[in-house]
Write a protein that binds this DNA or RNA. Structure first.
Length: 519
RNA sequence: UGGGGCGUAGCCAAGCGGUAAGGCAUCGGGUUUUGAUCCCGUGUACCGCAGGUUCGAAUCCUGCCGCCCCAGCCA
């Protein structure tokens, strides 16, 4: 989301964004991670053109800048160990103390730093620190570490360096080297800004960048912490970083959220300094909005119930013409086979239906979308009283589009011909957590939504087999669905539900339930 | 209890001394062979609270309250 913000903001206001990887810590970085980010940014529709950089591109310049600081008496080589450093730093309320090595001569510092670079010392033996103020109320100014020794092969610079710069130093100076005007980052770096400016004040580079902070975007019922997201993957709670329930770019992509919707969402959330927790509804609205116009309509039955048209000829098959988009005739039509035995949605039949239920009920009539009006004559049940089949009769005069009958019925339902149906595995996703802000939970595992994934065996209209992975369609009356980009194949259809349609009936039902529970 | 931030409707968010935009959600209504879409309409917001300055304050001042961040040789 930060990617989106940086590129989005730059696109609208300043013009150009850099995609820089701050690869200052060789034990944490990997090329795999870099290419994943690049892939995500590109997919979102942003183009960094030639502005793809790495902090490691500037290691030489960074080293020179560090030498300049030493020469100016503004940095020194320390030989305290990690525990001592922490102890000397003081606490939030107590000032720190100067390191006993703080007053080494410039010559000695220069010599030691040079030898650190050459690899004469072991990891942790020496450290380059800025000489600022150990009693500063801002802990970042208490002689922050500039360089540490790391005898590790760096993925880009190999083994030529034995010392690596810290983020604050590298980031500030890289911004300056690149001529960055606005360096955008998140709120937690506000305390680092005085240090950022200190580097600029002391080193006086020709270009002076400015750091500007904004708040993170938090999504309701989701976590964004990389550590926790990683735990979800490691512990097998989700299937990977691209699990469609993950709030990662890869996850949302696989889920079927269009890039444009994500960008729109970030834009609507705005850029401020307020900690925000945005409702899912905003994201879903963006997704529905972009998919509503773009995606073609299809019919699919998620939880099939068989319907037999008793008065329809056994072997007859009619091809029904269906619009690919009700509001855009230019998107064309397709033909859907219709026959005696059909699948309809279980939810579209109710034996004891309330007054306002205008789908199928015993003795009731309903229109089959793009087909005929049918009436439910018989309800067939099994031994335990479950409805297994409906016997209906169709009205020959009501064929869709013929106009030979003005007869109107209140409800229209979708269907798929049994003989022609294509089987598919459809995965229905829901929020991963049961708490609005799972970040607040002592253990996020305790607030996991155990029903975040439901897998159903669905019946699809035949035209769906032609679709390629990552294409999104609307299953009429159900929602938007996306062909899975990983597990779908010609033989096995695997489809993800992106988001449901708005459903005012479901809302009514819910309200009715709540009314009942009150009584 | 050191420092840095933030508080405008359920969720976001404009506004920056002249009498509270907009989006999402909600709730009504209309169109509809998707209970979708679309179209109309719908909010008494003590502008965190309390004082003060002013003809006039969400905007300026003071005090208070609440929430977030910071003690990596991580980024």
């Amino acid at each position: 989301m930060s990617i989106c913000l940086n590129f989005g903001v730059s696109e609208e206001t300043f013009g150009h964004a850099y995609l820089r990887f701050d690869d200052t810590n060789p034990i944490k970085e990997s090329e795999e991670y870099v290419s994943a980010i690049k892939r995500d940014v590109y997919w979102l529709g942003f183009d960094w053109k030639e502005r793809l950089t790495h902090a490691s591109d500037y290691f030489d310049q960074l080293y020179s800048a560090a030498v300049t600081l030493i020469e100016g008496g503004l940095a020194y080589v320390d030989s305290l160990n990690a525990d001592e450093i922490r102890e000397y730093r003081g606490t939030l309320t107590k000032p720190g103390r100067n390191s006993p090595h703080r007053d080494r001569s410039i010559e000695e510092n220069l010599d030691l730093f040079e030898r650190m670079r050459k690899g004469e010392f072991a990891d942790g033996e020496y450290l380059l620190r800025a000489k600022i103020d150990m009693s500063s109320p801002n802990i970042n100014l208490r002689d922050p570490v500039l360089y540490r020794i790391r005898h590790i092969v760096h993925q880009r610079t190999g083994d030529i360096w034995n010392i690596y710069p810290m983020y604050d130093f590298a980031h500030t100076m890289s911004d300056a080297f690149e001529g960055i005007t606005h360096s955008l980052c998140t709120l937690e770096f506000e305390d680092h800004r005085p240090l950022y400016n200190w580097f600029l004040d002391q080193l006086k580079p020709p270009h002076l960048p400015r750091q500007i902070e904004f708040s993170r975007l938090n999504l309701a019922y989701a976590i964004t912490s990389k550590r926790k997201l990683n735990a979800l993957v490691e512990e097998g709670i989700v299937e990977g970083w691209d699990d469609p329930r993950m709030p990662t770019i890869a996850g949302m992509r696989r889920r079927g959220y269009p890039a444009i919707a994500l960008r729109d969402f970030v834009k609507r959330a705005g850029v401020t300094k307020k900690n925000k927790l945005i409702e899912m509804g905003v994201l879903e609205n963006c997704v529905r909005e972009s998919l509503g116009d773009e995606s073609e309509r299809r019919m699919a039955v998620l939880r099939p119930l068989k319907v037999v048209l008793t008065n329809y000829p056994d072997d007859k098959v009619e091809m029904m013409e269906a619009m690919n988009h009700p509001n855009c005739p230019e998107m064309g039509t397709r033909e859907i086979p219709f026959s005696k035995n059909l699948w309809i949605e279980r939810d579209d039949f109710m034996e004891d239906a309330p007054r306002k239920f205008f789908r199928l009920k015993p003795g009731g009539e309903v229109r089959l979308r793009f087909g005929y009006i049918i009436r439910c004559d018989d309800v067939i049940k099994n031994d335990v009283g479950e409805v297994v089949e409906l016997h209906c009769s169709y009205d020959l005069d009501t064929r869709s589009g013929t106009g030979s009958s003005d007869r109107k019925v209140k409800g229209t339902i979708h269907w798929v011909s049994c003989r022609h149906a294509v089987d598919a595995t459809v995965r229905l996703y829901d929020r991963l957590f049961t708490e609005v802000n799972p970040n607040l939970a002592e253990d996020f595992r305790a607030v996991l939504n155990t029903r975040s994934l439901e897998i159903v065996s669905a019946k699809l209209e035949p035209s769906l087999v032609k679709l390629k992975p990552e294409t999104a369609v609307q299953f009429e009356r159900l929602g938007y669905f996306c062909i899975d980009n990983k597990e779908h194949s010609a033989n096995t259809c695997v489809i993800n539900r992106i988001v449901t349609l708005r459903d005012s009936w479901a809302k009514l039902e819910k309200q009715a339930m709540q009314q009942q529970s009150k009584i």
